[in-house]
Design a binder for these strands. Structure first.
Length: 221
DNA sequence: GCGACAG
DNA sequence: ATCTTGTCGC
């Protein structure tokens, strides 16, 4: 029962290629005080977003935003941002705190056209951003990650796109960190480590995942 | 044509 | 991502 409206993926691909040229993959920000994690949950064509604003100094949540929007784009590898950004944008508008950094549950530079959802959001909202995924989308991992804390570079088309990072011991899987916009690969990794609690994903994203799920459960009953 | 494929 | 409870183990 999908029947999604028609979408011009070719035009979207071209837009991604154009946007990639505007990316700033180097540190370009002032004081980083508040970081926001984002994630979405779905039920058919209803999308639920969770945005958790995290105080980097105090290491605590200062605001949680939950939104619901209509979704009319299916999941198509390579085009996740067109499905999720409308939800992220709604949550972003609803947030009151001045966010300095956005952390997304999705790829950044680790994308076929170097424009994952973290890059897309960073460019559209003009905010430094980072992407974190639980599975490798594209690229080759240059090393073996055996113990907690181990890191290995990920390259794609001869370019460093981010890092593979082992947050916990196996069987917890490795996560992949890549810069979105206005952040270098090295700093993206450092910020993920800095916001890493005792779980698999950095706290802002993990909590955003829970907030999105809670919003969905509350709406569905 | 076949397989791969973030969330 | 989503469909879904209890259960084994540190």
């Amino acid at each position: 029962m999908s029947a999604w409206p028609a979408h011009d993926y070719r035009a979207w691909r071209e837009e991604q290629e154009r946007m990639a040229e505007d990316l700033v993959i180097e540190d370009d920000f002032g004081t980083l005080r508040l970081a926001a994690g984002f994630d979405a949950a779905y039920s058919g064509r209803r999308g639920f977003g969770g945005l958790v604003v995290w105080d980097l100094e105090a290491a605590e949540v200062v605001e949680t935003v939950q939104v619901e929007t209509r979704v009319d784009v299916p999941y198509v590898p390579g085009f996740l941002s067109y499905r999720e950004f409308p939800i992220l944008a709604a949550a972003w508008r609803a947030a009151r705190a001045p966010v300095d950094l956005l952390m997304v549950d999705g790829a950044g530079l680790m994308h076929p056209r170097h424009l994952g959802s973290a890059c897309f959001a960073g460019l559209k909202l003009d905010v430094p951003s980072i992407g974190v995924t639980k599975n490798l989308f594209v690229g080759e991992v240059g090393g073996v990650l055996e113990k907690p804390g181990d890191v290995a570079p990920v390259r794609h088309e001869g370019r460093l796109t981010g890092y593979a990072f082992r947050p916990r011991k196996a069987p917890v899987k490795v996560i992949y960190v890549s810069p979105g916009h206005r952040v270098s690969p090295q700093t993206a990794l450092e910020l993920v480590r800095r916001t890493m609690g005792r779980h698999k994903l950095p706290d802002p994203i993990r909590l955003a995942h829970e907030a999105a799920g809670a919003a969905k459960r509350a709406a569905l009953g």
